[in-house]
Design a binder for these strands. Structure first.
Lengths: 229, 229
DNA sequence: ACAAAAGTGTTGAGAATACACCCATGA
DNA sequence: TCATGGGTGTATTCTCAACACTTTTGT
């Protein structure tokens, strides 16, 4: 049974960053048709001998100059007609970028790539709005049971950053005392002896996520899990 | 930028069934090279104008004659070299089949399709062992926070079936009293007035999963979740 | 009467929640 | 001294875990 199939395979990435208490997504402005001039998720066709992960990383590098800190597969979108030219199956990825990699477009036209706060998104090309939404839901879910939030913070951070991050992503208030108690009880944060000087107010101790410790705990049956009132 | 890309897109399905206290997977015996004669997951190339879901359903129908009761996307495997012929990207699906759809191969050679208990698997073609494992993990995870277990049982079932199902899938003993209490407290089971006569022992009431009720509860913020000692 | 599976409650321990004031710093 | 954000403890409620005997039926 020989089937002549002419479907293209692409990768697209929903990449989140967090700065100044805002969650943002990395978008590029399309330079070619279709949807020329529209904003879209970074991505493109997979090369013949390239793994899917390599393809995403390459596209991100080429189109945005961003260094990605966390990457996992999100979902595959393949409905016929989602690309007006050919049939394109898009394997999408979910990425996180830490603030020190937040600077973008070292090697591309600065007009063509930009962080958009999640509440100020432009119209998106193709079905990218759906993809983005899928990515956001993944983030909102996963942050409750995997320590991925740390990827969106500096290596060393004051506790309030973590609080704010969760509040921003989940879009709800959380109890500061209970949250701190819970997170600290996990024993996956190391207290550094540095302190952070906020623009005003009392200085704060800086903490560090201890990935090594987390792995150990995980292997001995520990589950990171946060619930909110 | 024109890229000539010659990657094929396939779908494969990890389909689970549950009968006689055993969890089984649906496999087919390959009739063509490569891996002719090997067991493999049902699947095949996507047709030009067919959605991915349609493709899985078609392949399952054609190759196994099975009617699927639950289907969701699992993961996409695309490492170059996973198929020795062309580059093939496989979008894999995770399926569940209820006991009344357990009969297979109405329209295919009976030798070519078979349920294999999860602990008596043959060698599998391609990277299908990895895919199967991914599917099994999905099942083991998801059964804890989504009411998908019911898809593996008859429409009406005695409580012990549910207990055994969880024990089988999670491969651990669970406390009957606590389990029943927890599940019933959700209010997503309807007690029928039928009873089930076991081969020996006291007859049991039959229950039914109330999908309507579950949807309502879910919309009002309820989360199905089971934890075990 | 016995074997087999169904059905059923209570108690203690630990976790989640709700809640408000003092502290350290810079302006 | 004031404004700003950091840091901390307790009492109550709820949920989870541990645990064993009685009931109904067929043989």
């Amino acid at each position: 049974m020989k089937i002549s199939q002419n479907i293209k395979v692409a990768v697209d990435a929903v990449v989140f960053g967090y700065q100044q208490k805002e969650l943002s997504v990395l978008l590029i402005k399309r330079g070619v048709n279709p949807f020329k001039g529209s904003w879209a998720l970074p991505g493109g066709l997979v090369l013949e001998n390239e793994s899917l992960e390599d393809a995403v990383e390459r596209e991100l590098r080429e189109e945005t100059g961003v260094t990605i800190d966390y990457l996992e597969q999100l979902y595959t979108f393949g409905t016929p007609g989602r690309d007006p030219r050919n049939r394109v199956v898009a394997v999408t990825y979910f990425g996180l970028v830490s603030p020190n990699h937040f600077k973008i477009s070292a090697n591309t036209d600065a007009d063509e790539v930009q962080w958009f706060p999640i509440h100020k998104l432009p119209e998106l090309a193709f079905d990218h709005a759906t993809i983005l939404d899928t990515g956001l839901k993944r983030l909102q879910n996963k942050i409750n049971y995997q320590p991925i939030g740390f990827e969106l913070l500096n290596n060393e951070f004051p506790f309030s950053d973590l609080e704010n991050l969760y509040q921003t992503i989940l879009n709800q208030k959380i109890d500061r005392r209970n949250f701190r108690k819970k997170i600290l009880s996990f024993g996956i944060l190391t207290e550094t002896n540095k302190i952070h000087q906020p623009s005003s107010g009392r200085p704060a101790k800086l903490f560090k996520f201890n990935a090594q410790k987390y792995k150990e705990l995980e292997e001995s049956g520990f589950h990171f899990e946060i619930k909110f009132a």
